[in-house]
Design a protein around this nucleic acid. Structure first.
Lengths: 338, 338
DNA sequence: CTGAAAGCGCTTACAG
DNA sequence: CTGAAAGCGCTTACAG
């Protein structure tokens, strides 16, 4: 690769001058500029962002740590982040943490070493105490996505209590009384959903029954396994609310294998609003979340902190989930309709 | 952020010594080492990969340019790449090109400026001529994924001719005679699939009819639109082969809206093997591709070129597609079964 | 075993 | 308008 020195030599000027035309900073005589430009072109010179970064203290890249890009909830979010970043000439470093706290920590460390200009941490399961400690020793702007925190960090989250509430209330209103819950990998989000679930139950004088809460892992297979457990219950529930659409789809599979008809024998509501849910059979009722937007907002927040400096107040943005009723939950319906 | 100087001062040694303990290069007295380690911990020092990169000429990051992470074909691939990269302490920079040649060029430029140690270019639509020119002026190791080339580059691709052939042959063997094709965004891949499609037709003495080939865009909406066009044909085909599963799903939607039963009135075969296809209704017959593996292999190839140097022969690896028959194509079947 | 110096490829004051 | 010098945070010979 040609360096700025090569260009300078070729154009018969100093590196300072080349730098000036590169950055359009300071005066350069028309004639000189043209020679420099010609040299750049001739040598196919590309300024090293990393050398620049060293002096400018910026790499023009953000780190995006998310649980698993293979889970259809996250690509949308990543895309929102990438699109917004690109508008400002930034790139995204993608890291999959698999809901694993150790991996999260590892990536946070690596991203710091790589001197990213900001980090978006999605669905983090890091304990508040660790987060607090980290934040103290942390120069890099950070925004929490899909995770709340009482600390001094930007965060964008869903009103997860409302998500749990809306899903459960919908099921109750459809006439279901015994509603199981397949939870995601433990995290604040999952706790909040459970609160909403309980709220809706309480409001309708249905007793909360711990036995009806099952542990899932946000994966299709985990949803299937949990549903198989449910099917072994002496008294079957008549509806299930899953903490994400993927688990709902796994549950759906298990139900079909067991020959149980949806929603007649068992209703199902997911959570996420991934587009996949529109195409399964029966189409999945879900709680929609503005994923793409959350990704782009996170990047916007990062830019705000970068530009306005430390003094900014931290924002805790909460998005509203929306119930999307499809076929898997309303009384009466079947796959070939609609 | 603390720098190596701070650590040196704190530990009362020279930066050379700190560097030595950091890299375990050269001798350091036990006692000195401990002091340095303590200083590092105390100051929460993290060596700047970017300063290191400047001298070592490596950034430990690869660029991954793919069409659209939102298309479920690509996350799997990205994950394969990321997992493999992580094993070697590398990170992935994610870029979405939207099948747009200009965006591809732009990202290729940016990634060079960012001095990535290698680039994986997925599904590139860049003309061979441009690729050739680029390769000449290109120091960065490159591997083409899901795209073939006669040039001196590593490439990993699917036998796309076989993909087209398998899909079409399967349909013919099921007894369908008039087989339409919804093609993806124009690219070598798409051309090869068409060749396979024609081969299968020819083998079974079915005349190729250009009118039955439709242009799609790899998106659900594009598949739906193409299918709507097909439905306006005076003589309806009795089967359709789509260049990816997403378009097949769009086609499926259009068929359901039109009240056309699958596969009785029209059969459908996709291509990709995304997991989504297993859950739509009817379950989609597809041509499976080992996506995750392709991602990890691409990274392996990158490491090979980095370590063995320029002299390596370029590899053109071709993976075998596999027909996966589900419900959307066999004669007799319906959604509630299985 | 340890430190001073040069250099990686840039930018940024500072002279002129 | 242009160039020489210092410096960003490291590593790597080279002395000692």
């Amino acid at each position: 690769m040609a360096t700025i020195k090569d260009v300078a030599k070729f154009a018969n000027v100093s590196v300072s001058t080349v730098s000036r035309v590169l950055n359009a900073s300071g005066y350069v005589e028309k004639n000189t500029e043209e020679r420099v430009l010609a040299a750049i072109k001739q040598l196919n010179y590309k300024p090293s962002q990393i050398a620049r970064g060293l002096v400018n203290k910026q790499t023009k890249t953000f780190g995006l740590v998310l649980p698993d890009i293979t889970n259809p909830f996250f690509p949308e979010l990543a895309r929102g982040a990438e699109d917004e970043a690109r508008l400002h000439g930034y790139n995204i470093m993608l890291c999959n943490s698999d809901w694993d706290i150790e991996k999260e920590k590892m990536y946070l460390g690596i991203l710091q070493e790589k001197c990213v200009d900001g980090i978006i941490l999605v669905g983090s399961r890091l304990p508040e105490a660790y987060l607090a400690e980290m934040l103290a020793a942390f120069a890099t702007p950070l925004v929490l996505l899909d995770r709340t925190s009482s600390l001094e960090v930007h965060s964008i989250s869903i009103n997860n209590i409302l998500s749990g509430y809306l899903a459960t209330k919908h099921l109750i209103e459809q006439g279901y009384r015994s509603i199981a819950h397949i939870a995601g990998t433990p995290s604040p989000t999952v706790e909040q959903r459970l609160i909403g679930y309980k709220q809706a139950l309480a409001e309708h004088d249905i007793l909360f029954d711990e036995v009806l809460v099952f542990q899932g892992d946000y994966r299709i297979s985990g949803g299937a396994t949990a549903m198989q457990r449910i099917l072994r219950l002496r008294n079957l529930p008549d509806a299930v609310f899953c903490d994400n659409d993927l688990m709902a789809i796994g549950a759906l599979e298990a139900l079909q294998e067991a020959g149980i008809k949806l929603p007649e024998q068992m209703a199902l509501v997911g959570c996420d609003g991934i587009s996949l849910g529109k195409y399964v059979c029966p189409r999945l009722t879900t709680i929609f979340q503005p994923t793409y937007k959350m990704g782009s907002m996170a990047v916007q927040l990062l830019f705000e902190t970068i530009h306005k400096g430390e003094a900014t107040a931290f924002k805790h943005i909460e998005m509203e989930p929306v119930l999307v009723v499809r076929e898997s939950s309303p009384r009466k319906h079947n796959c070939q309709e609609q």
